[in-house]
């Protein structure tokens, strides 16, 4: 029996684990087969305090994991499959194992939102990607598009210019919502051009991507654009739907009460799975800390002794 089971291993989950283990609570992290969260798919993180020159996203996550484990967190590299939060102790299952916990912290974060257009799904890894740092070197001297208008779209495009011949950022609105500093970097890059008021209608190709069908959403005009790769950066969707009995809001995020609590007593939540607003590594880590402190407080109120 664990005092705390943390589901998720991004900044929220691992920070929570650092706090609960240091509070001498027996802690399990159900980290997932792809542990580490969204930062594993990034390069240089320049806004995480304490790293004046920036730090590679994957290095930051490896350090957080090491820190949690050093304080005694157990880590299981399997995906959460189902949980029973209707009775205590709570039950958390993976494909091959079942665990019992006195409390649970859900920190499952968010995953890439795909376009959902014909031709996309079957070409993921064959020219369709959501991870420029992973796949950019395969597109040396190629022509690419990045879909999206936020920070991650600018970052993806900038990474791709190190290898690609030309990168076109395609955005459905008439202006970007990315931060000014990233917009400027993208606009100043000679390899990057922009297509506004445009959506991708279809991704084409046989073995791999060879083109896209685009629609100008002001004129309705459809054009074909020959292209070697499509990088999707239109945001993330919270990983909330796998949990039964938990209250979810209209946008699909786990409904949060008083910063860290779900509708089920003893089940706490932290990070991008409830946070539609900030979605930063540092805020996720902060939420993880808060959830861990609340879980500790709650356990103290429920149980006389810690074991």
């Amino acid at each position: 029996m664990h005092d705390v089971i943390i589901i998720g291993s991004g900044p929220a989950g691992l920070t929570a684990a650092i706090y609960t283990t240091r509070a001498n609570l027996k802690t399990l992290v159900v980290a997932g087969g792809k542990w580490g969260g969204q930062l594993m798919l990034t390069t240089l993180v320049e806004n995480y305090p304490g790293f004046s020159e920036g730090i590679q996203g994957p290095d930051l996550m490896m350090a957080m994991r090491k820190q949690a484990q050093r304080h005694g967190a157990e880590v299981v590299e399997e995906d959460f499959t189902e949980g029973d939060f209707t009775k205590k102790p709570f039950v958390v299952k993976t494909a091959t194992k079942s665990f019992e916990g006195k409390s649970v912290i859900i920190a499952t974060g968010a995953d890439t939102k795909w376009l959902g257009v014909p031709g996309e799904k079957e070409r993921i890894g064959r020219g369709v990607s959501s991870c420029a740092p992973c796949d950019a070197p395969f597109f040396r001297n190629k022509k690419l598009i990045v879909v999206g208008g936020g920070d991650s779209a600018m970052e993806e495009a900038l990474v791709l210019t190190r290898f690609a011949e030309k990168v076109t950022i395609i955005h459905r609105r008439d202006s970007l919502r990315a931060s000014q500093i990233l917009q400027q970097r993208a606009k100043n890059n000679p390899k990057i051009t922009f297509l506004f008021n445009t959506t991708v209608e279809e991704i084409q190709g046989l073995e791999k991507v060879t083109g896209v069908k685009l629609k100008n959403n002001q004129t309705g005009k459809i054009t074909d654009m020959p292209i070697d790769g499509v990088f999707v950066a239109i945001g993330h969707a919270p990983n909330s739907r796998i949990f039964q009995g938990l209250e979810i809001d209209e946008q699909g995020y786990i409904a949060v009460h008083n910063h860290t609590k779900t509708n089920i007593e003893g089940v706490f939540v932290a990070g991008d799975v409830h946070d539609a607003k900030y979605r930063q590594a540092i805020t996720a880590a902060g939420f993880g800390c808060a959830a861990a402190l609340e879980a500790e407080r709650w356990l103290d109120s429920q149980y006389d002794t810690k074991n």
Partner: peptide
Amino acid sequence: NVMSIPTLIIFKNGQPVKTIIGAQPKEN
């Protein structure tokens, strides 16, 4: 046609028979 890594390809009798693209749980 590896255009994304990690990619795992299982070969049998000289032919690729399974391709797994992206990080996957051990069970898969």
